[in-house]
């Protein structure tokens, strides 16, 4: 659906050249919800804006449905944009138009006949649950309702792709959840491809199928959300995961330094295996559970355990190897890490 190859973008600022995107390569499949997460300044905002060329890359190729969009002329680009909806952190609704008027707006731009437009507006208001607010102005709506208008507006020209630029970042947790549910619903009903950027790992966890982690203009890690959660490779990814699954141990906790502190992550079927009792039986070590949680990502059970393993170095090594063989991800937390991560 979307194929990005070797994308580069630099900004010239007063302080010199600033790299916003550096060798970005991505494949986004039809019908998936693809998340891009990164700290602020990582380039994710630039990244998503290149997909409808609100930002023009310096180099690289962006193919949408086999069409190279960087090669389009102005008129062709405007036509293409009509098939790419976009929603924004600050909603960007027209304050001078009602809910109805805002949803109708992109169709006016596209020259859709009046009757067809009115019919479509009614349908979309129903889809996002705002039929009773049709004649209200944006200033009379809550943040969540404004974003619903934004979504309805973005859908009005039947796009193939929906771009979501931090769409839930200025919403309260409850509205965030309802907007994320709505995004999932429209993906399922309309088979849209959704690309969203966020700095909240919770958003990724709740709706995304795959995720790319960006840092300093580069994609440092990419894959299925569940895999990233189970087995993160990069420090930045771990930091993000920690915002959702907080396995910080209280500082006051006195951990006996006889053994080793490990984090074990497991998913799917392996959540059912009696890991601890196996360890104790097979390797003559003690396993002290300091933290445990089972969660669900995209319907797959996913768990985290923090264990304090006590026993001889040798048997602990063997035990860790055994855990690895079971298909579980193990991470040894050093003394330093146990306090700082």
């Amino acid at each position: 659906m979307i194929e990005i190859r070797g994308l580069y973008k630099n900004y010239i600022t007063a302080q010199g050249s600033l790299t916003a995107l550096s060798n970005i390569n991505l494949n986004i499949k039809e019908g998936e919800i693809y998340g891009i997460i990164g700290p602020s300044g990582a380039g994710k905002s630039t990244m998503i804006r290149t997909l409808n060329l609100l930002e023009v890359p310096d180099r690289g190729s962006i193919m949408i449905n086999g069409e190279e969009i960087t090669a389009l002329n102005k008129k062709e680009l405007r036509e293409r944009r009509k098939k790419i909806g976009m929603i924004f952190q600050h909603f960007n609704l027209l304050s001078s138009r009602t809910v109805r008027g805002n949803i109708s707006f992109p169709m006016e731009i596209a020259g859709v006949p009046d009757a067809e437009r009115e019919e479509k507006v009614e349908k979309l208001m129903e889809l996002v649950g705002l039929s009773d607010r049709a004649d209200h102005y944006p200033s009379e709506l809550s943040g969540g309702q404004k974003q619903r208008v934004g979504i309805a507006r973005a859908l009005s020209n039947d796009p193939e792709i929906l771009l979501s630029d931090e769409a839930t970042s200025s919403l309260d947790p409850e509205s965030t959840d309802s907007i994320l549910k709505l995004l999932k619903k429209i993906r399922d009903e309309l088979n849209l491809t959704i690309v969203l950027i966020t700095h909240e790992m919770d958003v990724i966890k709740k709706v995304c199928d795959r995720v790319a982690v960006m840092e300093e203009g580069q994609i440092v890690e990419e894959g299925k959300v569940i895999d990233i959660f189970v087995n993160p490779q990069q420090p930045v990814t771990r930091r993000f995961i920690k915002t959702v699954i907080d396995y910080n141990l209280p500082e006051g906790l006195n951990i006996t330094q006889k053994g080793r502190l490990v984090r074990v992550s497991f998913k799917g079927e392996s959540t059912h295996k009696p890991l601890i009792s196996l360890l104790i039986k097979k390797y003559n070590i003690d396993a002290n559970i300091l933290y445990g949680k089972i969660d669900e990502i995209q319907g797959i059970p996913f768990g985290t355990l923090i264990l304090d393993l006590e026993g001889s170095d040798e048997s602990i090594d063997e035990a860790l190897e055994f855990i690895g063989q079971l298909g579980l991800a193990v991470e040894v937390l050093t003394d330093e890490q146990s306090n700082s991560i």
């Binding site: 405007r78 944009r81 790419i84 924004f88 992109p106």
Partner: peptide, 8 residues
């Protein structure tokens, strides 16, 4: 920007 993104 929103209007531009719609192809206006």
């Amino acid at each position: 920007e929103a209007a531009r993104s719609m192809g206006a």
